[in-house]
Amino acid sequence: MNKRPIIIFLLLMAAIIVFVIYKDLISKRPENRSVNPYEYDVVKYKSVDSAMVRYKEAQVISLNTRAPRGLAYANRKLYIASDSLLQVITVDGKEVNRAKLPASPSCITVTDQSIFIGFNDFIAAFDLNGKMTGRWKPLGKKTLITSLAVKDNLLFAADAGSRKVHRYSTDGKYLGVFDGKSAKDSKHGFIIPSPYFDVAFNHDGELWIANTGKRALEQYYDNGTFRTFWSNDEVGIEGFWGCCNPAHFTFLPDGSFVTSEKNNVRIKVYKPSGALDCVVAPSEKFPNEELAPALATTPEGDIYALDFQKKEIRLFQHK
């Protein structure tokens, strides 16, 4: 019997085995790498006790848009400012209105009668059908409007570019500006290291502003006078850490704060006193995201989060 073919076959197999072992040895599999002497473990700061998570994700609404920018809830509808569009959708995710905007928006707020949309350096008012009723005078080249809040006939616009809050009447009359200094000789007011600067009224009509560089939520009188604040510099779940947090916030009907943070993305509820109440969505709900979701709440206490990177609106409801 001719053994040559068998020998050739066995040699060939041996060569293949040697090649596979060699490739495996030099492969970049994590197990093949030596221990990293410079490892900086940040994962431990992202873990959350599951007992603290008291909300569940109940619904996801995918948005047919390229770049969502802002979210508001009013009149049992969701209002989304995106691309150069205003979209109005029902809570079931059905689009009921769509209107073209004069520029790319940066934020939105809605009342019972009007929609106000912030663009980079100006604000425009719309009726609830999306028809523009007023385009207000631009504020200047340094302006970057990131948030709007309305109470009665007053509108406050947070301007991250100049680190100031502008005050308007809802018919567009400019009433003034303040920079967050607690006293005239204060060395600084609002510290805004990146374009995250949120402003909102709670259900008692109190004006709250996120001083993100100080990781603080500050309360002001309507005339811009500083009143009080709370903050918690804490890398764990209890507080805010890093640059520019809380990036977005809003209020639940009981006056609790709902906050969202960037980079280590998570959504939490704080009691009106500033103590952590519970977690809405831990970091694991945002495995690949780094942008803080915009927030909106309903009178029933549901929380809508606009996930900018997935282009989705995610509904969180109490368990």
Binding site: V42, S194, N263, N264
Partner: peptide
């Protein structure tokens, strides 16, 4: 890593 995970 510190800057990217928690900062700008």
């Amino acid at each position: 890593k510190g800057c990217t995970q928690f900062g700008n």
